[in-house]
Every structure is written in structure tokens, then in C-alpha cells.
Simulated assay, not measured.
Amino acid sequence: MSSRKIGVLVSGRGSNLQSVLDRIADGYLPLEIAVVISDKADAYALERAEKAGIAAVAIPRKECVSKEEFEGKIDAALRAHGAELVVLAGFMRILSGNFVNKWTQKIINIHPALLPSFPGLDAQGQALEYGVKIAGCTVHFVDEGTDSGPIILQKPVPVLNDDTEESLAARILVEEHKAMPEALRLWALGKLEIQGRRVIVHP
């Protein structure tokens, strides 16, 4: 079976990217990362890609005169490398509806909360402030809203009495590193079907 190609968008360290690289290497993921794209030229994730022999492309937002130009360059790079799915792995920019509509049902994101609770920034801080007992992470398809697309899978994490944003984020990140490869495997094997807001996972 030939590997399906994904493009990964990143902004920082790339720990979720590394979790995918590791699961490709051990044979769990029948995927090829065709390109890694960052909005920051100094993102460590680009170094991870280069070490793995993957095309690493920096498209700094500040060097583009408009969001349209910025997203156009990302779209062009993804298509040039044959990406079939766009994976947001710590990409810290909101994609426009125009971009999302070019990749309808072909963008997935991981968010450090059990959506629809606590979308947007500082999800762990929101969870602690609200006083929830269970937090976690969500892998979902991206639509035009903020963290509002159909949910693929979720991983729960208990909130401890002495948790800080940092300690809770660290424990959620452990689950993120499991959730993203799991969701990508389901996609690669053709087991996901979107029905309205629901994602049906076929056996």
C-alpha cells in the first residue's frame, strides 16, 4: 500500500511533529510527510524536518504584504509537494475561510481541551479557571470557525488539585502525542467518514 502524503504546519518546537515522525519510523503510520511549513524561520520544528530528510519551508508572515499572500504561499507549497492532508501541529495562526474552503475536510488540528469546551487560546488556563475536573485534548477537522470542526477523537486528562497551567499542559501534551498519530492512522487507512458534525470511525 502506497503511503498517503501529508503537509504539516508548525510554529514552534514541533513536539507533535516529532510524535508523528516517530510513529512513521516504527511502522504504525502508513504516511509520508511531504513537507513541513513554518510561519517562523527559526522554528525548531524545521530542524526536526531537515534531520528527517523532509522538505522544510519557512514562510514568515512578516515578509508577506497580506494574509492572502501568506496563505497563498502556504497553499502553493503544500500542492507543490503533493500533500493530500494539512496537519496543524502547533501552528499558531488562524487560517482564513478562503484557505479552509480550498482544503475542505482536508485539514486537521489538535487542541489542548475537550472541545467544544475552551476553544481558542490558553485552553489550559480556561479549564483551571472554570474548575473542571477533566481536561484533555481533541483532534478535529478544521472548518471556518475557531476550534469548531467535526471531532475525530479525544483523550481525557484528570485535573489535579495542585495543577498549574504548566503542569496541566505538560500532561495534556503527553496525550496529544498519542492522539495525533492515532487520528492520522485512521485517516490514512480510510476509516473516517464525516456526517454533518459527526465523524464516523469505521472498523
Rank of each mutant, 00 (worst) to 15 (best):
N109Y: 05
N16Q: 06
S117M: 08
A34V: 08
K73R: 15
I94T: 07
L121I: 09
S117E: 11
A169C: 05
R4A: 09
V132W: 09
E84W: 06
Q105M: 10
D163S: 14
S66F: 10
L95T: 06
V199M: 12
H177L: 10
L85E: 10
R93I: 01
C64K: 11
M92K: 04
L9P: 04
I110K: 01
N16G: 05
Y44R: 10
K67T: 13
L153I: 09
P203M: 12
D42S: 08
A34G: 14
G14V: 04
F91N: 02
L153A: 15
S38Q: 04
G7A: 06
R48V: 02
G196S: 15
Y130H: 14
L160P: 15
K102D: 11
L85Y: 06
A76T: 09
K102P: 08
P60M: 04
R93E: 06
R4I: 02
P150H: 11
H202G: 13
V57L: 11
H202E: 15
L184Q: 00
V201Y: 09
V57G: 03
N101S: 14
G196P: 12
S15Y: 07
S11T: 10
V65F: 06
I200M: 15
R198H: 14
Y44H: 11
I134K: 14
V35S: 08
K106Y: 03
G7I: 06
L17W: 01
K40V: 04
S117C: 07
E68S: 15
R48C: 03
F118G: 05
L88R: 03
A135I: 07
A45F: 04
Q18L: 10
S2C: 07
R61C: 01
A188E: 08
P60I: 04
I107Y: 03
A188D: 09
I110C: 01
V201F: 09
D143Q: 11
D75I: 05
M92V: 01
I152W: 02
I152R: 07
I151Q: 08
T164F: 10
A43R: 06
V139K: 03
L85G: 05
E50S: 14
E165H: 02
T138Y: 01
I172A: 11
M92D: 02
M1T: 08
G72Q: 13
P119I: 00
E32M: 03
